[in-house]
């Protein structure tokens, strides 16, 4: 079985966001991590392999630094990694990324049984790539999955919907996008980190995939980024509990008009 996990390298969720003079978000001094939802995807891929055999290939689109994210996944237990790294993909939108991944997965890395992705990345938070990739590869998909099982070549997934959950049966090959709760992500072991150094990590440019710069043109363009207006501390209500509560209710009714 060939299992693919798609990941993205993102800012640490605790990172403080700074907008540079050019209206773009600066990554200066920011700690980069594997997008947390993608860690669930990699973990599920490795667990599936441990149960049913096969190989786990981790793929990403990114710059040179993204190799570190792939090494981390190899240290967790993935078998090999592919990085699509091309200057034309800097600042690529979800469309461009999914075009590049789809090309890789339909040609050079064709023949997969399952693709795992995170449900979204914590940086831009759009979550488009899983669905776009499923469409481009003509796959069954289950989005925001909290439970996954594979038996007799049939995949069963439980996914979150608004106000509840839904259980799906999917025809393979399929794409599963992971939500928190799908599994508990392992820490890479120290021997795993050492072994990861010897595992293959292939770096491909657009040309290696047979794609041109025009093929991966972004359709969404950032005009400007700005920090949201900071919330200010409001009133501190003090006094005896009964007084404070009465004051709060009165303010919520008369001043804020929310109840």
């Amino acid at each position: 079985m060939k299992i693919v996990a798609c990941i993205k390298q993102t800012f640490d969720t605790e990172a403080k966001i700074v907008v540079g003079g050019d209206g773009q978000i600066s990554d200066e001094g920011v700690n980069l991590i594997v997008n947390p939802y993608d860690e669930y995807a990699v973990e599920e891929a490795i667990r599936t392999k441990e149960k049913d055999g096969g190989e786990v290939v981790v793929v990403t689109v990114g710059g040179d630094k993204a190799q570190e994210a792939l090494r981390y996944c190899l240290a967790m237990g993935a078998d090999r990694a592919v990085l699509i790294n091309d200057p034309a993909l800097a600042g690529a939108d979800s469309r461009a990324v999914s075009v590049a991944l789809a090309k890789l997965l339909s040609e050079k890395e064709a023949g997969f049984d399952i693709i795992f992705t995170g449900k979204e990345s914590v940086d831009d938070g759009v979550g488009q790539v899983p669905s776009r990739l499923a469409e481009k590869l003509d796959l069954a998909q289950a989005n925001v999955v909290t439970a996954f099982e594979l038996s007799d070549g049939k995949a069963t997934a439980t996914r979150e919907i608004d106000g509840g959950s839904e259980t799906l049966e999917l025809v393979l090959p399929a794409l599963i996008s992971a939500q928190k709760g799908l599994n508990e992500v392992r820490y890479p072991s120290l021997p795993g980190i050492m072994k990861a150094k010897r595992k293959p990590l292939e770096v491909l440019a657009l040309g290696d995939l047979g794609l041109s710069v025009d093929d991966v043109a972004s359709k969404v363009e950032l005009v400007a980024a700005e920090l949201p207006p900071a919330r200010k501390a409001g009133q501190r209500l003090t006094g005896e509990v009964d007084e404070v509560v009465a004051k709060l209710v009165q303010l919520l009714q008369d001043e804020a008009k929310v109840i």
């Binding site: 966001i17 907008v19 940086d123 969404v220 950032l222 980024a225 920090l227 949201p228």
Partner: peptide, 12 residues
Amino acid sequence: VYAGKAIGSYKV
């Protein structure tokens, strides 16, 4: 973006 830590304006 970054869960509301910044706001981006976009064109399609």
